[in-house]
Amino acid sequence: MSHDIDNTKRALRADLRERRQTLSQAQLEQAGQGVKAQLDALVERLGARSVSCFLATSTEPDTRPFVEGAVARGIRVLLPVTRADGLLDWAVAEKDGGITEGMFGLPEPTGELLGPIAVNDVDLMIIPAAAVDESGMRLGWGRGYFDKTIGSMERCPPVYAVIFDTELLPDVPREVHDQPVTGIVTPTRTLTFAANDR
């Protein structure tokens, strides 16, 4: 059974990745502007003073303008750094902070590493996703870093996944270790799932 789910996930991720690669630079820039506006409003609504976010890849809605704006407003932003043991480390985003290519070719900060438990103090987590379904179940990219992080937190803050509008699906395949999210942020809206309101 698990093998079937794994194959279904793999096929869905491949389809979603292919769709993202067909987006033009103009569409990606517009998506990034929309996501920044939605994230700014979400941070304001929640009164978040410390957040975790990720540095988007070239086919994701760009999160860097949001991160830069948040840092400029005095909000503490933690950025993830992948580790070989399957855990995420964290570094504080800084104005003009360096970015390097981390494991799996992902953009990551070059600052001082704070350890995996640093994320326990944030008011809001903003994470990547391939898709999210209407119940709030998230389909990640298959490495399990964020599922592991969310699943291990004693007091998990609200968790919002950034996706394109077309990536909110009726249903996504799920396994026992998969973690739901509180809501999604797309270029046009922010949606909170009532069942997962942490």
Rank of each mutant, 00 (worst) to 15 (best):
R17N: 12
R83W: 13
T190G: 04
F146K: 04
A11I: 08
I99R: 14
T110G: 02
L46F: 00
G136C: 10
I126C: 06
V43N: 10
S24Y: 11
R19V: 08
D147C: 08
E94T: 01
L78H: 05
L88Q: 04
F104C: 04
W90S: 01
V81H: 11
L79R: 13
K148P: 06
G69K: 04
R45F: 00
P107Q: 07
Q179V: 00
L28M: 13
R174Y: 10
G151D: 14
D147V: 07
V122L: 03
L28K: 13
G151M: 08
P107M: 02
G144I: 13
K36W: 04
G98Y: 03
T110C: 05
L87F: 11
V67Q: 08
L106I: 12
P170D: 15
P173R: 10
G86T: 12
Q21M: 14
E44V: 07
V162M: 13
E60R: 05
A56T: 02
V77C: 15
I75F: 08
D62W: 00
W141Q: 13
T82S: 11
A129P: 04
T188E: 00
W141A: 05
L106R: 06
L124N: 05
D133C: 12
K36R: 15
G32H: 06
E60Q: 03
T190K: 01
V159D: 04
S52I: 06
E154W: 12
G32E: 01
D15K: 15
R189Y: 00
L169T: 12
D121R: 13
L139I: 06
V51H: 09
S52V: 03
I150R: 05
V122E: 00
S2M: 15
R49T: 04
R19E: 14
F164D: 01
S58P: 03
P157Q: 14
L78C: 03
P65S: 05
K95T: 15
T22A: 11
D147K: 08
L139R: 09
P187L: 01
D96V: 01
G151H: 10
D123Y: 05
L191Y: 10
M153N: 08
T149R: 14
A56E: 01
R19L: 14
G140E: 04
M137H: 14
R17G: 01
L114T: 11
H3P: 00
I117C: 03
S152G: 15
A70I: 09
